[in-house]
Structure formats: structure tokens, C-alpha cells
């Protein structure tokens, strides 16, 4: 049992892409959806990861993630041929794709992964597509080639100017909003703080802005309510009502606080995981 890893690529520092055998998920998934990953039945945690791409013919899905905690670290350490014990999905409401006119897709850091299939689908639906892709520096950029290939207009920015424009993604976004033909829809996916400021950027222009949230989840099917967020003053569940919501209505500050609920535990577990991996490597080289 389990899902075999067909291919592993290191996309950037701390960013790994896995192509995983999951024929049912590959056949059913649509842009905007995610999976829950668990590495060990008894003691492993369940984490949500967005599906960056899928190939129904070969029965595989592509997961792209940053190794930020224990589970993503162990996942990133797996090799081709290894298996992932538990994979549940595709979960969440698919992105509503239609012809809006001019769509601006804004991706920050690892947010480029879930954004890519959405951007592709928006383009295929006949929209004019502008992609703004941002990262802290050039070594952290992912999917820039792929995004460039699907976009009508492609804007690259880095915080330090090591690739593309030296700017935050909100800068070109504001310029686009101010242009004569303002965007009809903005889709922004990235760190919560980036999504918050993208929503603030488009708010004065009254441009519909969709964000995709990645909160703490256990089951991913509506049962635990751990993923809840406040949207327009109402409590919504990211797993069954989302993951996409109106960015102008999401209470990002509350969401950011909730994301940090287990920070202390996560840091300790991550540190321990590093030490164990190092010890394993040492043992391996000793023998």
C-alpha cells in the first residue's frame, strides 16, 4: 500500500517537487484543490498540501512544498521509489474558472505551486493572463519557466532584486490596477501576509480578489473545524467551504495568529527532526 514517488526534484533551496502515484486523485482533481498527506499511520501528523499539477493518463500528481517543519522535512527526504503511506484527496472546492477578461495571478514563494494550475486553467478558459511571481531572492524562485510559458504577460520580482524587478509583488499589482484597463479578477496565493497586502492593494479599486488559504487541518473533510477562518464576520471552514475566499473579506490577522498556535511545538519538533537526520547520516557514513 501507499503511494509511490515516481520523481523527485529539488526546485530551490528548501523547495521540493514530488511526482506521486495517485491515479484516483489524478483523475478527479481540479485546479484549486489539495490533498492531506500523512507519513505514518500511528504517530504521523496530517498536513494539507496543494496539488501543483496532475497527469490523469500516467496517474500521477505533483506536490510542491517547502521543508519548513518536521513532516515536510521527512517528506522532502524521501527518494524516488519510496512511498507515502496516506494520501487523501482531492479536497476543497475547485477554483471557479470562467472567462472574466483580464486575470492577474499573483504568486509569492511556495504559493506559485497552487497558483500554477489555476493560472493555466484561467488562460485555457480564454482569459488574458498576467502573472506576477515573487520570491525573496532568485534561489527561492519556483515555476518561473512554467508560468512564463502560460502567461500573456509575465512580471518577475524579488525582494533583493537578484532576479527581475526589485520589488514586492504588490507594486506591479498596484500599477496594473491603476492602468486604463484594470484587471477583472486577481488571484493571489502566497504567504498570508502577502495575500493580505494584495487584498489591501486591490480594495480601493474594487477589483475582485480571490485568495487561497492554507490553514492548520486534521481531517480535511469538515470534521475538526481547526481550519476555520473568519470571512466577512462569519466562520467558514477552509477544507469544505474553501480553500478560496474573497480576499477583501478574510480576517487575515486572526488567521495568522491561528497559524502560529503550535509554533513552539513545531520549532522543537523541527529541530529534533534535524538532529535525528544528522545522526542518521553520521551513522550511515560510519558504517
Amino acid at each position: 500500500m501507499g503511494h509511490k514517488i515516481m520523481q523527485r526534484r529539488q526546485l530551490a533551496d528548501e523547495v521540493v517537487q514530488l511526482t506521486v502515484e495517485a491515479p484516483l486523485i489524478a483523475a478527479e482533481r481540479r485546479p484549486g484543490q489539495f490533498v492531506i498527506v500523512q507519513l505514518n499511520d500511528d504517530f504521523g501528523e496530517r498536513i494539507p498540501l496543494t496539488i501543483a499539477d496532475a497527469d490523469a493518463k500516467s496517474g500521477t500528481i505533483t506536490l510542491i512544498f517547502q521543508t519548513v517543519g518536521k513532516t515536510t522535512h521527512l517528506l522532502g527526504d524521501l527518494r524516488e521509489g519510496d512511498t507515502i503511506a496516506n494520501l487523501l484527496g482531492p479536497l476543497g472546492q475547485p477554483t471557479h474558472v470562467e472567462k472574466y477578461g483580464h486575470v492577474v495571478a499573483v504568486g509569492g514563494g511556495i504559493g506559485g505551486a497552487p497558483l500554477y494550475p489555476i493560472a493555466k486553467a484561467m488562460r485555457e478558459a480564454g482569459n488574458r493572463l498576467t502573472v506576477i511571481l515573487g520570491a525573496r531572492n532568485r534561489d527561492l524562485l519556483i515555476l518561473d519557466q512554467e508560468m512564463r510559458a502560460v502567461a500573456d504577460e509575465f512580471i518577475l520580482c524579488t525582494d533583493d532584486g537578484s532576479a527581475g524587478r526589485k520589488a514586492l509583488v504588490t507594486e506591479p499589482l498596484r500599477e496594473l490596477c491603476e492602468a486604463t484597463h484594470a484587471p477583472d479578477l486577481v488571484v493571489a496565493i502566497g504567504p498570508p501576509i502577502m495575500m493580505k497586502f494584495c487584498a489591501e492593494t486591490t480594495r480601493p479599486f474594487n477589483i475582485r480578489t480571490v485568495v487561497s488559504l492554507n490553514t492548520i487541518m486534521i481531517d480535511g473533510t469538515g470534521m475538526c473545524g481547526g481550519c476555520r477562518v473568519s470571512v466577512g464576520g462569519e466562520t467558514r471552514f477552509v477544507c469544505v467551504d474553501g480553500p478560496e475566499f474573497d480576499g477583501h473579506k478574510v480576517d487575515f490577522d486572526n488567521m495568522i495568529q491561528r497559524l502560529g498556535a503550535y509554533r513552539e511545538h513545531e520549532d522543537v519538533a523541527h529541530e529534533k527532526c534535524h538532529l535525528e537526520l544528522q545522526a542518521n547520516e553520521r551513522n550511515a557514513s560510519d558504517t
Binding site: 484516483l24 486523485i25 478527479e28 496516506n86 494520501l87 487523501l88 484527496g89 482531492p90 479536497l91 473533510t221
Partner: peptide, 9 residues
């Protein structure tokens, strides 16, 4: 297990 009818199928 790991099969949510309505989504997986």
C-alpha cells in the same frame, strides 16, 4: 481508508 466518496470518487 483515505477515500472520501464525493471527492476521491
Amino acid at each position: 481508508p483515505n477515500f472520501v466518496v464525493g471527492r476521491t470518487r
